[in-house]
């Protein structure tokens, strides 16, 4: 009979050591965020100290080699791109989710889901290629040069529709069936039930998805780099070529040195902060819903 006391007869797996090793991995994984913040901030610090936050916002132009560090036109372009893309993608994405759950005929549901997932998995550089080769020439026919704010908005919208759709679908599916039955019992039709009962019930999940999609649009590099023209100027019309913060980093990192390089890290830091705020807002909505 086995003794209850710890014996060396049977080699036991040392749970303690393994837990320690696994815990170290978890620490490392969650420490990467800190590492990123430290390094991006560390590289940005010289610019923040010598140039100062104010000048990034008050300088009229972006000539970093001549000491002009105005980020405002690019900030504005980034916002305009993300906001424009969301304006299109939010309603379309929600509609697509509703379509797939409640309107599509049975045979269409699975292929349509495949299509949305395919689009979600399409690399942004392929979307950019398509925008550059197909969409930009079309827009150029309406108003040259074609590579412009509107081109970026349209392709970004196509890119983030799946994000909105997938999140909305999850939110709509989590609405209890009883909500539908109750609405039907009140004599509400499908559309009335959707508008009055189901969509409000799924509101927060959908909002979270939209914020997340906004964050993606704001942080996207390849699409905007390839099709918005990359000219630093305030976006004063849909057909204006603009340069976003992300594409600015991609364009200038290759040769930037000194304060110039540091100020690119500043714009990276600013971008990160903006995306933090958006995903934090999205997360708060989600957490509230689960609470």
């Amino acid at each position: 009979m086995t003794s209850l006391r710890i014996s060396s007869l049977f080699p036991r797996t040392p749970d303690g050591y393994i837990a320690f090793g696994l815990g170290a991995a978890a620490c490392l994984a969650s420490g990467i965020l800190l590492l990123i913040l430290i390094f991006v901030f560390g590289e940005a610090w010289p610019a923040l100290r010598t140039i100062g936050v104010v000048r990034f916002l008050s300088d009229g132009a972006w000539y970093p080699t001549d000491g002009a560090f105005g980020l405002v036109p690019m900030l504005a372009a980034s916002f305009a791109l993300a906001a424009g893309a969301l304006t299109i993608a939010a309603p379309v994405g929600v509609a697509v989710a509703i379509f797939r759950l409640h309107y599509a005929p049975g045979w269409m549901k699975a292929p349509y889901r495949g299509l949305v997932l395919l689009l979600a998995g399409t690399p942004s550089v392929v979307l950019g290629l398509w925008g550059l080769m197909v969409l930009v020439p079309l827009i150029a026919r309406i108003e040259p040069p074609g590579a412009s704010l509107i081109a970026g908005i349209l392709v970004l919208a196509l890119m983030i529709v799946p994000t909105v759709a997938i999140a909305s679908e999850a939110a709509l599916e989590s609405v209890p069936r009883s909500c539908w039955s109750a609405a039907n019992a009140l004599g509400l039709g499908r559309e009335a039930a959707l508008l009055n009962v189901v969509l409000p019930a799924a509101r927060e999940g959908i909002a979270g998805g939209i914020l997340l999609a906004g964050a993606r649009a704001l942080g996207e590099t390849m699409v905007v780099l390839m099709i918005t023209g990359n000219i630093v100027q305030m976006p004063d019309g849909l057909f204006t070529p603009v340069r976003a913060l992300t594409s600015n980093i991609a364009l200038e990192m290759a040769y930037a040195t000194g304060d110039h390089r540091a100020s690119l890290f500043v714009s990276g830091l600013a971008l990160t902060l903006l995306v933090f705020l958006l995903s934090f807002a999205a997360g708060t909505g989600r957490r509230r819903r689960h609470a």
């Binding site: 969650s30 990467i32 965020l33 590289e43 991609a250 690119l264 990276g268 990160t272 933090f276 995903s279």
Partner: peptide
């Protein structure tokens, strides 16, 4: 921290990787 990490724009990962 994982949620935040998942949301960081890829260009910032590029900056970090470079630095």
């Amino acid at each position: 921290s994982l949620d935040v990490l998942a949301g960081i724009p890829s260009i910032v990962f590029g900056l970090f990787g470079n630095a």
